[in-house]
C-alpha cells in the first residue's frame, strides 16, 4: 500500500540531505583548497578521512578518553598524518609536474589502507556505538548528535570563510590561489602557505572521518568512494573554486537523497543501487556540458 508523500517526508529528506551534505562539504572543501592552490590531486584523501576517524575511535573506545579530547586528538593526528603525506609524497614532486602526486598519493593510499587494517583491524568501528536519541522537528526525525554535527560543520565553514575573506592570512591565501607568481613577486612565501593549506585540508578530512565514525561506522574499505565523491564536488563546482565545491558537495548529497527517496511522479521509485552513481554522473555531465564547472573562475584552469 502506498500513500501520497507527506510534507514531513520532504522535511525528512531535507534533514537527510543536510546530514550527508555536511559530511561531503567538509571533505570536498579541503580538497578544493588544495587543488586551487597547489593544483595537486591528493588521491589518499579518503584514507586521511578514515585515519582521523579511527584515531578518534581509538582514543575514545580503547584509551577511554572523554569524547571531546578524543575528537581533538583525532583532528591532531589527522593533521600530523596529512603533514607527513605532504612532505613525503607531494612536496618533493609537485614542483616538477603537478600530476606526479597523482601517482605517489595513489601508492600512499594503498599503503595507508594496509596500515589501517593492521592498526585498527578489519571489523567496523563506531565512535559512539548504539542508538542515538532522536527527536522530531517539523516531522523530520533527527538525533542530537546529527544536529551538533550539522551545526559544527556550519561553524567550521563560517570560521573558514571569515579567515579566508576577512583576514590578512586569508588575503594571502587567495592571492596565492589566484596568481601564484604575482603573489611570490610581492614577497608572499607561498611554499609555507602550500604546506599550511595541505594540512588544513587534512584537518577538514579528519573532521569528516570523525563525523562518519559518530553518525555511522568506520570500515577500512570505505576510503575510495569518499575520494571520488569529493572529486565530483570540486569538478562540478569549478576546479579551484572552494565555495563552488562546498555548494556542489551539499548539492550532490541532496540529489542522492532525493533521487532515491522521492516517489517520482507518484509512479515509481529509483532503485537504491543507483544512489552512488549520482556523483559519477555528475562528473560526466559537467565534463560534457561545462568543463569549467558550475562556478568557474579564471584563477586556475586545469
Amino acid at each position: 500500500m502506498r500513500r501520497a508523500a507527506q510534507p514531513s517526508e520532504y522535511m525528512q529528506l531535507l534533514a537527510n540531505a543536510l546530514i550527508a551534505g555536511s559530511l561531503a562539504a567538509l571533505i570536498a572543501g579541503g580538497l578544493a583548497l588544495v587543488y586551487g592552490v597547489l593544483g595537486v590531486f591528493n588521491m589518499a584523501l579518503g584514507q586521511l578521512v578514515l585515519f582521523g576517524g579511527y584515531s578518534t575511535w581509538w582514543l575514545h573506545q580503547v584509551v577511554h578518553l572523554p569524547l571531546i579530547p578524543s575528537v581533538l586528538g583525532g583532528l591532531a593526528s589527522g593533521a600530523l598524518m596529512t603533514w607527513f603525506t605532504f612532505e613525503i609524497f607531494v612536496n618533493p614532486f609537485y614542483k616538477h609536474h603537478r600530476f606526479l602526486p597523482l601517482v605517489t598519493t595513489i601508492a600512499w593510499s594503498m599503503i595507508l589502507d594496509g596500515m589501517m587494517l593492521l592498526l585498527f583491524e578489519e571489523r567496523p568501528r563506531s565512535i559512539l556505538p548504539g542508538l542515538k536519541k532522536t527527536f522530531e522537528i517539523q516531522g523530520a526525525r533527527i538525533s542530537v548528535e546529527q544536529c551538533i554535527l550539522i551545526l559544527l560543520t556550519l561553524v567550521a565553514l563560517l570560521a573558514f570563510a571569515y579567515v579566508f575573506h576577512r583576514t590578512s592570512f586569508g588575503r594571502k591565501l587567495r592571492a596565492v590561489v589566484q596568481h601564484d607568481s604575482a603573489a611570490l613577486s610581492l614577497g608572499i612565501n607561498s611554499a609555507v602557505l602550500h604546506r599550511v593549506i595541505f594540512i588544513v585540508s587534512g584537518v577538514f578530512a579528519g573532521a569528516g572521518g570523525i563525523f562518519i565514525g559518530i553518525d555511522q561506522n568506520l570500515s577500512p574499505t570505505f576510503a575510495f568512494p569518499l575520494t571520488i565523491k569529493a572529486y565530483a564536488a570540486i569538478i562540478a563546482g569549478g576546479k579551484g573554486n572552494i565555495w563552488g565545491a562546498i555548494f556542489c558537495a551539499y548539492l550532490i548529497a541532496g540529489l542522492e537523497q532525493v533521487l532515491v527517496g522521492v516517489h517520482w511522479f507518484g509512479a515509481f521509485y529509483v532503485p537504491a543501487g543507483y544512489q552512488q552513481t549520482v556523483a559519477l554522473l555528475f562528473i560526466i555531465f559537467f565534463l560534457l556540458l561545462k568543463p569549467s564547472g558550475l562556478f568557474s573562475s579564471q584563477s586556475r584552469t586545469a
Binding site: R171, Q178, H179, A183, S185, Q298
Partner: peptide, 15 residues
Amino acid sequence: GIFREMTLIENVLVA
C-alpha cells in the same frame, strides 16, 4: 599580475 577575484583595495592591501 593582479588577483582578479579580489577587490582593488584587497589587491593593494595584500601587497
